[in-house]
Amino acid sequence: MTMRDTDRALVQAASAVAKLRCRSAAHTLASAARTGEGRVVSGVNVVHPPGGACAEVVVLGAAVTQGVGELETIVTVGDRGRTVVAPCESCRRLLADRFPALRVIVGPVDDPRVVPVTELLATADLAD
């Protein structure tokens, strides 16, 4: 799928959150998701030894609390916004189950691309 201007803006939004909020080992990734209406919901992961929460899961929780029903596109960035990261296997399954038409931005930050979330289920690693 082709990257749209709104997709590039979503990468920038996630990168801005990462630069601002991912300043410790407890928060290393930031996600941003866009609704069909253009609203953006963001969040960061929570690293904790027994088990934390992925940034994508935090975004889904934030979307629910804000009354968002459908997400159109999601992106996750790391390295304080310098790297686009594909969702982990668990998040891929969750996103595909909840939003089967979701578009996911993956690939290198200097040349990202958009793929359907269902395509990620069959792909071992599109992250880096």
Score class of each variant (00 low, 15 high):
residue 1 M to F: 11
residue 1 M to R: 09
residue 5 D to C: 05
residue 6 T to N: 02
residue 6 T to P: 00
residue 7 D to C: 05
residue 8 R to P: 11
residue 8 R to H: 14
residue 11 V to N: 02
residue 13 A to C: 00
residue 15 S to Y: 02
residue 16 A to F: 04
residue 17 V to G: 00
residue 17 V to K: 02
residue 19 K to P: 02
residue 20 L to S: 13
residue 20 L to Q: 13
residue 20 L to A: 15
residue 20 L to W: 10
residue 21 R to H: 11
residue 21 R to Y: 07
residue 27 H to S: 15
residue 30 A to M: 00
residue 32 A to R: 01
residue 33 A to Y: 01
residue 34 R to I: 09
residue 38 G to D: 05
residue 38 G to E: 05
residue 38 G to W: 00
residue 40 V to H: 02
residue 40 V to A: 01
residue 41 V to I: 15
residue 42 S to F: 01
residue 43 G to R: 10
residue 48 H to L: 13
residue 48 H to N: 10
residue 52 G to T: 08
residue 55 A to D: 04
residue 56 E to I: 04
residue 56 E to K: 06
residue 56 E to Q: 11
residue 58 V to N: 10
residue 59 V to Y: 05
residue 60 L to W: 04
residue 60 L to I: 14
residue 62 A to Y: 05
residue 62 A to K: 12
residue 64 V to A: 14
residue 65 T to G: 07
residue 65 T to N: 12
residue 66 Q to T: 03
residue 67 G to Y: 06
residue 67 G to P: 04
residue 68 V to H: 07
residue 68 V to W: 05
residue 71 L to E: 02
residue 71 L to Q: 03
residue 72 E to C: 11
residue 73 T to W: 00
residue 76 T to M: 04
residue 80 R to W: 02
residue 80 R to C: 12
residue 80 R to E: 13
residue 81 G to H: 00
residue 81 G to V: 06
residue 81 G to P: 07
residue 82 R to D: 14
residue 82 R to K: 13
residue 82 R to A: 15
residue 83 T to W: 11
residue 85 V to T: 10
residue 85 V to I: 15
residue 88 C to R: 08
residue 88 C to T: 12
residue 95 L to P: 09
residue 96 A to K: 07
residue 96 A to R: 09
residue 98 R to P: 09
residue 99 F to S: 02
residue 99 F to G: 07
residue 100 P to Y: 06
residue 101 A to M: 11
residue 101 A to D: 14
residue 102 L to A: 04
residue 102 L to N: 02
residue 103 R to K: 01
residue 105 I to H: 02
residue 105 I to A: 02
residue 107 G to H: 10
residue 107 G to A: 13
residue 107 G to D: 09
residue 109 V to K: 06
residue 109 V to I: 09
residue 113 R to W: 06
residue 115 V to Q: 03
residue 120 L to F: 06
residue 123 T to D: 11
residue 125 D to C: 15
residue 126 L to H: 04
residue 126 L to T: 10
residue 127 A to G: 12
residue 128 D to F: 07
residue 128 D to L: 12
